[in-house]
Design a protein around this nucleic acid. Structure first.
Length: 460
RNA sequence: GAGAGCGUAGCUCAGUUGGUUAGAGCGACAGUUUGUGGCACUGUAGGUCGUGGGUUCGAGACCCAUCGUUCUCCCCA
């Protein structure tokens, strides 16, 4: 028999990991609710049409497709064979696959809004915390199954939404004690730049190239732009644009000089300004204008966000932005929205790497009753049930065994208190309660155990 | 989609230019006179060296293939 294994890019989570993950989930969920978002859950898989074509060509390749059932039906043999031929040509079709695993939470949300816009109260603010799946090559900080936590606002164009989301980002990372930079840019600025440099159709080419600036340097970016058939003067304009540095205010000024005469550029700059000016100047958010920030998902139209941990080498741990026409893809126009996403798995990796998790997250069972014989354990069991009725968690050692063995079990499981009922205690109707961390122990009447532990527990 | 590294005990890893019966630490289990844990000591179990082929008198080591895994690029959270 083969050794058991799990699929590439997936993980099992043990108790200690889950406690820590839940710490992150709970922090994010509380913040979402604090800011007035309501929960939504959507299916793990969607109709393949819902997902395909929404994430660009690369994205389509990374969608996990689900094979249809019944392909082995002899009556459909010819049809299936022909359909499979199309798959080999790179064209998925419904004979072979008509469902696919969720790739992110934004598109399923847009699909939900399009289906239910008649019943929803706008602006609709929803949060969603569910796993997504990508057929990517796993590596550091990259998994094939991972959680996203999204908050989106649809049905409203006001920039106050962006302001709220920027504060929400800052709030969560502040609660997690995780230092971050929230990078911000605006697609209108990039669109204006593209327009000035040879036309809107060059937008994707330009954004892909300048997004690489901090990785490959200015010369390589120029090279790539040359290959993408931009003229010398256009490339120089872009190079000047990329030289924009300094504080956010300085960047805004430089941007105004560079593309401020262009109507779209002017709008983009004003948007950034609005967000930056709506914060407490005595306690500013870690916002940073980054003119090279582009983000791949092609449905963004306005503000774009990306969060990076400042003290740890990891890709972005959050991202988002404004999209004006997302539900139009599903036949419902005029539904502008803006949203952000938290990458829980990467946040976990960063916090683990920086040792930022609080120490007391792991809390095992409260009490272990020792098992020192049939009658003794019988008495212990009824006392245990009394404790459970008072919401004090406990267990009885599963069999009669030597004391040191039972002590070791309690220790390994992080149990704080053991209750010993042996022949002496049984005869005297009392019990010995020992606190493992301090080694202190008291012998008390069995009837007082619940109260004793209740006051003890509240002191923890 | 492109490239690189690594697969030896449950875990982390040694293993010399190819040379007898493949080792350590941790963990597990048992014991150190059966009512007090962590420490220490003693002992036990656990490996067809990822898999298949090849080179060789001889392969854990060298070669090829294959599977798994980690990392980088692409892209992304």
């Amino acid at each position: 028999m083969n050794k058991p294994s799990i699929p590439q890019g997936t993980r099992d989570f043990n108790a200690a990991t889950i406690y820590k993950r839940n710490y992150i989930f709970n922090t994010i969920r509380q913040a979402f609710q604090l800011y007035g978002f309501e929960p939504l859950e959507t299916p793990a898989f969607e109709n393949i049409d819902t997902l395909m074509g929404k994430y660009g060509e690369e994205g389509d390749k990374l969608i996990f497709k689900i094979l249809n059932n019944g392909l082995d039906n002899p009556n459909k043999h010819l049809e299936v064979t022909a359909a499979f031929q199309k798959i080999l040509e790179g064209k998925p079709n419904k004979t072979i696959t008509e469902r696919a695993l969720r790739y992110d939470l934004t598109i399923p949300f847009a699909r939900y809004v399009a289906m239910n816009h008649g019943q929803l109260t706008f602006p609709f603010k929803r949060y969603q915390m569910q796993p997504v799946w990508r057929a990517d090559r796993p590596q550091k900080g990259r998994y094939r199954e991972f959680y996203q936590c999204d908050a989106d606002i649809v049905g409203s164009t006001t920039l106050m939404n962006e302001v709220e989301l920027a504060h929400l980002y800052a709030h969560v990372f502040n609660m997690l004690n995780l230092p971050v930079t929230i990078k911000m840019n605006n697609r209108k600025i990039l669109a204006a730049l593209a327009d000035i440099c040879g036309g809107a159709e060059k937008l994707t080419a330009i954004t892909v190239a300048i997004d690489k600036l901090d990785k490959v340097g200015i010369d390589k970016v120029k090279e790539e732009l040359q290959q993408r058939l931009l003229t010398e003067s256009q490339i120089e304009t872009i190079a000047d644009f990329l030289k924009i540095k300094g504080t956010n205010e300085e960047k805004l000024q430089a941007l105004t000089q560079s593309i401020g005469n262009h109507s779209l550029g002017k709008e983009g700059i004003a948007d950034l300004q609005f967000i930056l000016h709506h914060q407490d100047p005595t306690n500013p958010l870690p916002l940073e204008i980054d003119v090279t920030l582009a983000r791949g998902l092609n449905y963004y139209t306005g503000t774009i966000f990306e969060v990076k941990a400042t003290d740890y080498n990891m890709g972005s741990i959050g991202g988002g932005g404004r999209y004006d026409n997302l539900t139009e893809l599903f036949g419902v126009p005029n539904m502008p929205g803006v949203g952000i996403s938290f990458g829980v798995d990467r946040i976990y990796d960063v916090m683990e790497g920086l040792d930022l998790f609080p120490k007391q997250l792991v809390k095992g069972t409260d009490v272990l009753f020792f098992n020192l014989g049939p009658e003794e354990s019988n008495r212990a069991f009824s006392l245990l049930q009394n404790l459970r009725a008072q919401n004090i968690s406990g267990e009885l050692y599963h069999e009669t065994a030597k004391l040191d063995k039972q002590f070791k079990y309690a220790e390994k499981k992080g149990i704080a208190v053991v209750v010993i009922i042996g022949s002496k205690e049984l005869a005297n109707n009392n019990c010995t309660v020992k606190h493992l961390a301090t080694g202190q122990q008291n012998t008390i009447p069995q009837s007082e155990l619940v109260n004793y532990l209740a006051t003890f527990e509240s002191g923890l």
